[in-house]
């Protein structure tokens, strides 16, 4: 039941994009087609889960014992960047098909605020290892959901007559705002 609650909370109530406003750049940038948004969502899920796992261990066994908590942000960025590079090389060699489908998105999310945000978020809430990894997985599912919904709406808008002043990014931002408002309705769920 706890995990179910966590799932609902991470995906809908505290949606990483629409309620916590992290990862706005891929949300607006990679949501023009459904295929692209799914690819981006998968890449973020993949990297975020790995990043949370690694940073959790670093926090626990390097930063905490030496009282270096104030270095958290910079160390996490360093580790995530290195990790993404490593994963990219690893995939290229071991799983070429996965590399081909994720390949172009991986470098984009090296310093994605959603990935870093989740790594820091689980530290702030002092979750244990398995919970943090699971929470990250759920949160990135929420990220993917937001991206796919946005892509679906944008695909519809491609067929509509939009006033010239609102074409493109302005309309994207308005839609993002409205979706965020809609997701606020989930706050009453828990």
């Amino acid at each position: 039941m706890d995990y179910f609650l966590m799932f609902i909370s991470a995906v809908f109530v505290n949606n990483i994009v629409l309620a916590q406003f992290l990862g706005q750049c891929p949300y607006l940038g990679c949501s023009k087609e459904k295929g692209v948004s799914i690819g981006m969502g998968m890449a973020v899920m993949f990297v975020a889960v790995m990043a949370t796992a690694v940073t959790w261990l670093v926090q626990k066994y390097v930063l905490d014992p030496f009282a270096l908590g104030y270095l958290q942000t910079i160390v996490f960025i360093l580790i995530i960047a290195g990790l993404v590079q490593f994963v990219e090389m690893f995939l290229k060699k071991i799983m070429p098909p996965l590399y081909k489908s994720l390949g172009i998105y991986l470098p984009l999310i090296t310093t994605n605020c959603c990935v870093l945000g989740l790594a820091i978020l689980v530290q702030r809430d002092a979750m244990d290892f398995s919970t943090s990894v699971l929470y990250t997985l759920f949160a990135t599912l929420g990220f993917m959901l937001a991206l796919i919904l946005m892509a679906g709406i944008r695909e519809r808008f491609a067929l509509c007559r939009v006033p010239r002043a609102l074409q493109g990014t302005p309309l994207g931002l308005i839609m993002a705002g409205l979706m965020s408002l809609c997701f606020m309705a989930f706050k009453g769920m828990i």
Partner: peptide
């Protein structure tokens, strides 16, 4: 000093891992 050393140390370790990976996983 500790901050600089820690960061440099982590950076160095990551760099070594990446070098090793680029050799091991060369395509």
């Amino acid at each position: 000093l500790t901050s600089v050393l820690t960061l440099a140390g982590i950076g160095l370790i990551l760099a070594l891992i990446l070098v090793a990976a680029s050799l091991a996983f060369r395509v």
